[in-house]
Design a protein around this nucleic acid. Structure first.
Lengths: 351, 351
DNA sequence: ATGAAAGCGCTAACAG
DNA sequence: CTGTTAGCGCTTTCAT
């Protein structure tokens, strides 16, 4: 077996209490004994047993992250900043994957029952009001990242502002018929982005035209935020014939990928026949020259854990609902200076 | 506080031992009492405290996965299959991110010291022989995924076979001057893929030409397996002028992305001026029509955990070094039937 | 300042 | 079959 606190105590000729005090930088301890104990600790290479500590302290030193893996891999960026923070604070990350949007409740229940974590990060999941109450009733705090529920602290991108800005970009370029392809409206980001789109139209005295809005079917994958849904949606847009919009705000980059495919198949050209701007700025977007709204995932993750830690440490003030601004990244899919050339083009300044 | 085993025992009028036995489906227990206890358990909504169980059983019910996050996101596929398996077995996954290839030892040391896991999955990391000994000395078993060290059980793709097949594909297409762009040779996959490339040349009576091989600088990112490294490598190949190869096996798809960019900048065309085949089959490869060797990540992850569980349960036989075949995915970057058109082209059959 | 002892919540060996 | 007890390895009073 591994060396325990008793081994150290015996070897140092002290009680286990003293060893514990020495290890945990307890104030009331003789510097001399402390040094002696720590010497033995080093010699024996003693490492406190985390689980035993957890049980005694009623603190697990780890947090849970519940993530739907099928979302477009951008959660990696979130995870990166989260693990970086946790690692600095000697905390562990227990990762839970929910395969579908419909199974997250069961997973979350398991996390709560488990008591293996001091806090929960609920990522990219639309928590229902009823479930929010359950979360609130629990002792372990939770914060929602990349989504919103007013009962639970959260940090997300400013979907509405982003969508507005995206649409406005198109309008400023001179487009009068700006359409939108959105995810299913059962999803919070889809709703907010639609609002932003409408707002931009309104602010620029452009009429909102039902025909120019295509909502992806939720049945096509999760919330319709995927390539194939974008492809099908674009097919619908193509049906419009002469009534077709000259520009399109697509609610996510992956959908935009599908849109581009459909456009190409139709023998049309981007941005000449259709200007598009996406949302997310996934890794691949720069390769295909897609103008899009960049989400600050790193910052989102960091702010999320930070808030969670505040909650865990009781230094949380009132409700917290941070909205991070999305940033417009102009590339070639809207025309302008540079003409769009499909392919492996990318912004080289980024390197 | 939450309900404990004592609460249940008192309420059911039994000892805590009986409650424990009822919960753990212990054989020697009266079905009637068991039912009664379980009834109380349900009524009180009792959930055993995982940490306390862990301490008593000397078993944590969780495994660690140490992953370099910067690798090309394909580890998500690994994680998916791993979490699926763990979830089925009521195990948790503790995720550790190593930001650079040089810091993994410290992280792994921490994992070992922590004693919070029953097993360790070391992913995409080249474990040194010295460190392998340290791993072996430890009581908690480890298996390496997507890499190789003969001292530790592992599952990886058959890099050599894959590279051979990729190169052979090019040769069969009639190419006589087939070059290669590889990652830095400090990485195991880079070495094996080079061997496969050479083998294919040899088997087809083609000479190996030093000039046609470009090794990416390890200083450019980690092991040179990235876009910018591929770009720079291709620039070198372009220098060859008339001696340029007509086809190229690129050791990874991300590098291939860089290659394509450089080719385009040079005003050349794929596959007419240069045929290329990559390795990995990352998500975007199908969008750009890249012919490549697909790695069976899902299977890799599954076999990895399965082996780890065997190890943990003592049913492990001799050393285990599984090599999974890579599969050639033919798209447009090598010419053939379909002519290559850069852009958002993709195989639609896949949907 | 420090040793002894009482938990933390559970499992498992030991008596009955 | 089942109640009791002794740990698991550590933290934290409580005396001293």
């Amino acid at each position: 077996m591994a060396v325990t606190i008793y081994d150290v105590a015996k070897r140092a000729g002290v009680g286990i209490g003293t060893v514990s005090r020495a290890m945990n930088d307890n104030p009331g301890i003789n510097p001399a004994t402390k040094a002696r104990v720590l010497g033995v600790v080093k010699k024996l290479n003693y490492q406190p047993h985390t689980l035993a500590q957890s049980l005694a302290r009623k603190k697990t030193f780890s947090i849970a992250a519940v993530v739907p893996f099928f979302t477009n891999y951008f959660f990696i960026e979130l995870l990166k900043s989260i693990t970086a923070f946790l690692s600095r604070n000697n905390y562990n990350l227990i990762l839970y994957n929910v395969d579908t949007h419909y199974k997250w409740e069961r997973t979350l229940d398991r996390v709560l029952a488990d008591r293996s974590t001091d806090g929960i990060l609920v990522i990219s999941i639309g928590v229902s009001d009823e479930y929010a109450d359950r979360l609130l009733a629990n002792t372990v705090p939770a914060v929602i990242v990349d989504n919103l529920n007013y009962k639970i602290d959260s940090v997300a991108v400013a979907n509405r502002q982003g969508a507005r800005e995206a649409t406005e970009h198109l309008i400023k370029l001179g487009h009068k018929k700006v359409g939108m392809i959105d995810g299913h409206l059962s999803s919070f980001p889809a709703i907010s982005r639609l609002q932003g789109y409408k707002q931009a139209l309104l602010e620029n005295d452009l009429p909102f035209d039902d025909e120019l809005l295509v909502i992806c079917d939720a049945k096509i994958g999760e919330h319709g935020f995927n390539e194939i849904a974008g492809y099908k949606a674009m097919k619908e847009v193509l049906q419009l014939g002469s009534k077709m919009p000259t520009a399109l705000f697509v609610a996510s980059d992956v959908q935009a990928l599908g849109v581009m495919r459909a456009v190409k198949e139709a023998g049309l050209h981007i941005p000449d026949d259709l200007a598009i701007v996406g949302f997310d700025d996934i890794e691949f977007s720069r390769f295909i020259g897609l103008t899009t709204m960049r989400q600050p995932f790193g910052k989102m993750g960091r702010l999320g854990v930070e808030r969670l830690f505040d909650l865990m440490n009781g230094k949380a003030d009132a409700g917290f609902h941070k909205e991070l601004k999305a940033e417009l990244i102009v590339r070639e899919s809207c025309g302008g200076e540079k003409s769009f050339s499909a392919g492996t083009d990318c912004e080289c300044k980024k390197y």
